[in-house]
Every structure is written in C-alpha cells, then in structure tokens.
Design a protein around this nucleic acid. Structure first.
Lengths: 103, 103
DNA sequence: ATTATATTTGACACTTATTGCCAAGATAAA
DNA sequence: TTTATCTTGGCAATAAGTGTCAAATATAAT
C-alpha cells in the first residue's frame, strides 16, 4: 500500500503539473539545479526559506507545505528510535503543558 | 506555575541526591566536567550514549529518560515554529500510517 | 579571611554535517 | 544521433557539534 507522500514527491509532482523545469525553479530559488533535484528526490532537505518560496512558485498552500516539511523533519529525528512514538506523544504533552502555563 | 522538568534538571537532581560530584560522574562518562555541567544546565545536549550511561549511573529508568531526552530533542526542532503543534500531530499521523502499512 | 573544593565560563581545537557549485554521466525526446 | 533535462559524485566553504583546558566564580570548611 502506498504511504503518504514525501515533501519531495509533492514538490516534483507540482512542478511537473505546471510544466516547469528544474532549471527554472532552481533559478527562482537561486540555487543550483542539482540541489533542487536532490531535494525532490529526498536526498537533501530544503531550508524553510526554500519551502516558503516553493509554495509560492508552485502555488501550494504555504501552511500545509510547512507542516508537511516540519513533520518530516521531526520524523527524521526519531526514525531509528524504538521509543520514537512515545517520545512524540511526550513532546505533545509538554507542548500542551507549556502553552497552558505561559500564555 | 512550574513547567515540566528538563532532562538537565532531572540529571542534576538525581546526581545531587546521590551525593555525586560533577567530576565523578563526568569521569564515568569519560568527558570533561565542564561538559556535564553544561548538559545539566541545558547549555549543551547529551548524546544518546551519554543518556544511557547516565541512566545507569544515576539509577534512573532508562526508557523514561530516553523518552524525556528524545521529546526534548523533538521540541527543540520546532521551538520557534508557529506551526509546531500541527507538525507534531501530522508526524504522529504519519507514524501511525506507516506502521500500519509496513508491518 | 583564607584556603580548599566544586562549579561555571569562555576561548580554542578538532571533527562531522550541511550547503552549495561544478562537470561529467545517464535518460529521454526529437 | 543530437539536444535538452536530470542525476551523480567530487570538491570547497561554512556551520554545528563535541571536547579540552585554564581562568573565574561560587561554595564550604577552618
């Protein structure tokens, strides 16, 4: 069964839908074509600034793309961790707790 | 209101409860006293190996300490992010989804 | 107050990750 | 087969992480 799309897959799909070339989008991001290629294939991670620009260029919902990007970053941190799932839940708890008490 | 304890706070508390010196624990970890001091005060992050050794030295529940440590690491990734909470939830969703479909 | 011990701080060095450029190789379209 | 696009891997520059050491500060005991 197909798992949820990676950020790279989303970016590539949308770029192709728009008929844009790596070269063109890379130029708008002011980076080398090779890097964008690697980002789309998940070999490298984009920076947050690049994600924001990409959302604009590809007319994707910025918030959704950032959430996608951040969640991937989080999962990367715990990808080899047996206790990853517990850690995620603990992180949510702490986040709730802290919000409750400093706002 | 007091927020939940940091890993560093837990480590310091337990070390002091046991009457151990920074110097002693640092020696067991095979690092300089200065680093352990910084870890306890949250100025530096411990490695996972160090956390495991610390759990042993301080007789803390290893799993609990690792979860604490990882969740702090996760929160660090999104500490300045407005969408952090949404990203966390999205990460949990993906984790569930992936577990369901590769196991 | 002096001394001794413990902790903190900051400068430095070393290593590892990250980020990017470039050129050569592979793929695909014409 | 030519041409355009994309991918790959090597290299350089920079940033981040990890540790040492010595000096400064704090704590405790005489």
């Amino acid at each position: 069964m197909k798992e949820s799309k990676t950020t790279g897959e989303i970016l590539r799909e949308e770029r192709e839908k728009k008929g844009l070339l790596l070269r063109q989008v890379a130029a708008m991001l002011d980076i080398d074509t090779a890097i964008l290629s690697k980002i789309e294939r998940g070999e490298r991670k984009a920076s947050k600034e690049q994600i924001i620009k990409l959302a604009e260029i590809l007319e994707l919902d910025e918030e959704a793309l950032i959430v996608q990007y951040l969640s991937e970053k989080i999962l990367y941190e715990i990808k080899d961790e047996e206790l990853g799932s517990k850690a995620l839940k603990a992180a949510e708890q702490k986040m709730k707790y802290n919000n409750k008490n400093n706002s």
